[in-house]
Simulated scan of single mutants.
Amino acid sequence: MIRTRSLVSDGSRLRRLAPLALPTAWGAVTVAWKFGCPLARQPGLPMRIATSVVFLTVGIGLVLGLRRGLARELALVRAVAVATQQALLRPPPARLDGLALAAGQLSASRGACVGGDLYEAVATPYGVRIVIGDVRGHGLAALGAVVAVLGSFREAAHDEAELGGVLRRLERALERHLRERARDEHPARTGTAPEHPAAEEFVTLLLLEVRSDGRLSVLNCGHPGPYRLGRTVERLPVGDPLPPLGVLPLPAALAPYTAARLRPGETLVLYTDGAEEARDHRGRFFALDTVLAGMCGVAPEALVREVHTALLHHTGGRLTDDVALLVVRNDRVRVPAQPAEPGLRRPRPAPSSHC
């Protein structure tokens, strides 16, 4: 097994060096010709020009070889990043238990496909359960917390009958991750202070359940409330916020907010705070509600695409925080009350007896 890994490593190393083989060999021949051939040492302008052209050709070949090798490595890294994103932030299904869904993310880290935002939607016996969250910071340093929270949600959403039980499972998973990070970052092991210490990491999070009749149950841990698009655009009430996960322990009693509803045809837009905190070159915030006001009735996938385009235009492509969007539209059909069949009479109530 070890020998096989060694052979694979040697093969990949040879493939990376292959583009440099021809320029290196040509350079070696040029140096040998320059210092070993009497004709090359003759004075005169023509010979100097010829020597300069030869060495310039060798230099260009080396640069192009290095550039080709770096481009190949960059393509490999991007392929790995895309595969990581698909495994970590899986695109939601286009339809889920009568709901139409779409999601997308913009990373603030240049060249990164994933960052500190997370989202997921799953169909369970208790309804469609959705989570969207934002880890403090962005980029690769926040991936550990994203993995811990999403992995726990994908299991707990099916196991826990109560939405509060799901949230407690997420809290325990994040606490385990932070304890492991704090142990790994101890000065006795690293000798240096971490750039993003675990003691300063927390997750704002919105946990939501859409039942078959459109009723919503919401638990909000310091996350911005979603927008509901119907005839108008309004911010959906989500009740009193709980502390973000990782800051303070959750209270003993967790009562979801249940007074909201997603009616047939209405759309819910969940997002992370990077959307509303994005600024242009003049320091003006991105007006997400204004942008959404012109998108009532737009399909979820098109809505995500249009908001991303507007964000990049507003910021000039220079995001300072990750942005995630999850759009849910209720496509369930409301069945009207059916009239009684002809010829059937409603039975009369039996006469009441009096003592």
Rank of each mutant, 00 (worst) to 15 (best):
M1R: 08
T4R: 08
S6R: 07
D10A: 14
P19V: 04
A21M: 06
P23I: 00
T24K: 01
P43Q: 03
G44N: 00
R48W: 10
R48K: 08
T51I: 08
V53Q: 04
F55Q: 06
L70W: 00
R72C: 06
V77I: 09
A79G: 11
T84I: 00
Q85D: 11
Q85S: 12
P93E: 03
A94M: 03
L96H: 05
A103T: 01
G104S: 10
Q105S: 15
A108G: 09
A108F: 05
L118C: 01
Y119E: 04
Y126P: 05
G127L: 04
I130K: 07
V135P: 12
V135C: 14
R136V: 14
L143E: 03
A145Q: 04
S152K: 00
D159I: 02
A161M: 07
E162K: 00
G164A: 09
V166W: 00
L167K: 01
R168S: 09
R169Y: 01
H177K: 07
D184R: 15
E185A: 13
H186Y: 07
T192K: 13
T192A: 15
A198C: 09
F202G: 05
V203Y: 08
V203Q: 08
T204C: 05
L205V: 04
L207T: 04
L208C: 07
S212M: 02
P224C: 05
T232V: 14
V233H: 10
P237A: 14
L242F: 12
P243R: 07
P244S: 12
G246D: 10
P249E: 14
A253Y: 05
T258M: 02
A260D: 15
P264Q: 01
L270R: 06
Y271S: 10
A278W: 07
D280R: 08
D280A: 10
L292I: 08
G316Y: 09
V323Y: 08
N330W: 03
V333I: 09
P339Q: 10
P342W: 11
P342Y: 11
G343M: 12
R348Q: 15
P351Y: 05
S352E: 15
H354T: 13
